[in-house]
Structure formats: structure tokens, C-alpha cells
Simulated scan of single mutants.
Amino acid sequence: MAEAIETKDLTLSYGDEVIIDELDLIIPKGEITVFIGGNGCGKSTLLRSIARLLKPKSGAVLLEGKAISQMSTKAVAKQLAILPQSPIAPEGLTVLQLVKQGRYPYQTWLKQWSEEDEKKVTAALLATGIESLKDRLVDSLSGGQRQRAWIAMTLAQDTEFLLLDEPTTYLDMTHQIEILDLLFELNEKEKRTIVMVLHDLNLACRYAHNIVAVKNKKVFAQGKPELVINSELVKSVFGMECEVTFDPLFGTPLCIPHGKGRYILRQKPF
């Protein structure tokens, strides 16, 4: 397994509260890795640390074997892009202006906007299917369109590694699938290494090559969804009783929660 990102004895905290404790983790290169776990378990904190947005209390994050803490900000930005939860664009910003922000790491006093920058921005708009929206204000877009615009900005950054913190939050089912299909295609066609935090366990299983379950400040389990996800893990990590079967369309694990609800005997499937 080729290593893209690695943590060694990584401890993260907010003040005196330890969130992640001496965590060792390897994220494989060229795959989609999804962090899962209960609320407050440290998934987003871990992602922020990998992106060098949060300084470790101890330990290290390695990006292709190099300590990310010892790399310059621009060097990191040329290799790794992060899309945080619910990003907010400045008022009055157009889609094109937002996407152009992705080229900031390549700008210097001597080297301003170039033909290469223009190509990367155009390619990002095309890849996310929002070229026709480039003159629209970001504030005027639907939730799905807005999320595509932010992803286009990260694509314009032209990094091998994409980190996304709950990219489907607040989106309806249609837009969730659209965004995840887009990320899946980017991985398939361009072999980009994608690391995401997702709340929906079934969607995580469908799209991930590699699942990382976080619990008690540690990695509880890691591996292919079909080898990792079962009713015992769901009970341990989420405290929820469920049955785990197979998605009839994709063959990936499908979690069916126990709980109160109406039972209807149907003669035919939906």
C-alpha cells in the first residue's frame, strides 16, 4: 500500500482536552478514504491537522514522507487542498472569482496571472459542470451548485490530495449523490487521493476504498468497507443496533438501523 499521508504518535487537543491521542494512521495513495465515527469523536479535528490547520500537541503528520510542519505554506498548498465544513464566500463574489482563488499558491510578486492559471481554472469549471454559472454570484446558487463551486476552487489549486470535511452536509439526496459521484470520477480518472469526513455510513461504504472508524481518540478500525463494516462495529462506534446486509446495486455494506417504526408487509418491492 503506497503511503500518501501518515500520522505518527499524533496527539491533538483544544486547550487541555485531548481529542486524538497518539494516533498512528496511514492513508493510501490514489484512493478515497472516509473518516467515520460518532459526533465529537475527532474526525474533523484529525482532518484539520492533516491539512496543517491545527498544530499537534505532539507527534507528526507526514505528507509523502515529509513532515508537513516543516514545509512552507505554499509548498503544502501546491500538494494538498482542503474544503472545510460550510465555507462562506465574501459577499458579491462570482463563481469565477471564487475558483480563481485556488491559484493563489502559484502567484508571486514576479509571477502574476498566467495562461497556465487560466487553463487550470477553465478545467476546474468544466470538471465540476459549472462553466455556465461562472458569472453568477456564489450567494445566488443552490446548495449543490455552491458546493460544486467550492470543489472547483480546490481543483483549480491542482493538488494531488483533496481533503473534504462533510462535503454533503445540508444537501438533499440528489445533490449528495451528485457531489460524491463527482469526487469518485476525479479519483477514477485523475487518481487523486481524496480524504473525506462523512456522516452517512451507507454512502461512506459505497464510495470509499478505505474506511477509518474513529473512537476513543484512536483508530478503532481501518480497511475496505466490506471487511470492516459489520453490526458489531456499528454498535461499538455509534452505539446503534443494526443489521448489515449488502447494497443491491453496488454490493457494498448496507446498514439497516433497528428502531421503532411502522412494519408493512408488502407484496412487491418499491
Rank of each mutant, 00 (worst) to 15 (best):
L54Y: 12
E17I: 13
L47M: 08
E17F: 14
K224L: 12
Q107C: 08
S13E: 04
H199G: 07
K217Y: 13
C255G: 08
K191Q: 09
T73K: 13
E160C: 05
P257M: 02
N210R: 11
L227A: 12
E17T: 15
E241H: 09
D165Q: 03
N216G: 13
E226Q: 10
E22W: 13
A149L: 02
A81T: 00
K191R: 09
N202G: 07
T128G: 05
P167S: 03
K43R: 07
S49K: 07
V76N: 08
L163M: 06
L203P: 09
M153W: 02
Q79T: 11
L54M: 12
G261K: 03
M173H: 14
K217D: 11
K134M: 12
V212S: 09
L163F: 11
N230E: 10
G59N: 08
L98H: 00
V61L: 07
F161S: 10
L249N: 12
E118S: 13
T11R: 01
K215T: 11
G42N: 03
K43G: 14
G129L: 09
G15E: 06
E243C: 15
L125N: 06
L12D: 00
A77L: 00
M1N: 15
K119D: 11
Y170C: 10
T11F: 06
T108R: 01
S44M: 05
S58C: 08
E178W: 02
D117W: 04
K55P: 14
L233I: 02
A208P: 04
K218Y: 12
L155Q: 00
L53Q: 10
G65Y: 03
G251Y: 03
L265M: 15
L227H: 13
G37S: 03
Q97E: 11
K43Y: 07
Y104F: 08
E131T: 15
I50E: 04
K120W: 12
V95Q: 02
L203I: 06
N202L: 08
P248C: 04
M173I: 09
G92F: 01
E166T: 06
G30H: 00
S236H: 13
Y106C: 01
S49E: 10
L171M: 03
V214F: 03
A81Q: 01
I264C: 14
M173C: 14
K74H: 13
L227F: 11
T94H: 05
D24K: 04
L93W: 05
A124N: 01
T45K: 02
G239A: 05
R148T: 00
L47P: 06
L25A: 06
R206S: 11
I82D: 01
I68K: 04
S44D: 14
I194L: 10
V121Y: 06
K191I: 07
P28G: 02
P84L: 01
I27Y: 09
D158E: 07
P225A: 07
T159A: 04
R206Y: 10
L93T: 04
D21M: 08
V95G: 01
E3R: 12
R52N: 10
E22V: 13
V18T: 07
W113A: 03
E116S: 11
G42T: 10
P225G: 04
C41A: 15
V61P: 03
T73S: 11
K134L: 13
A2L: 12
L163Q: 02
M173R: 13
A221K: 07
L93E: 11
P87I: 04
D165C: 00
Q101P: 07
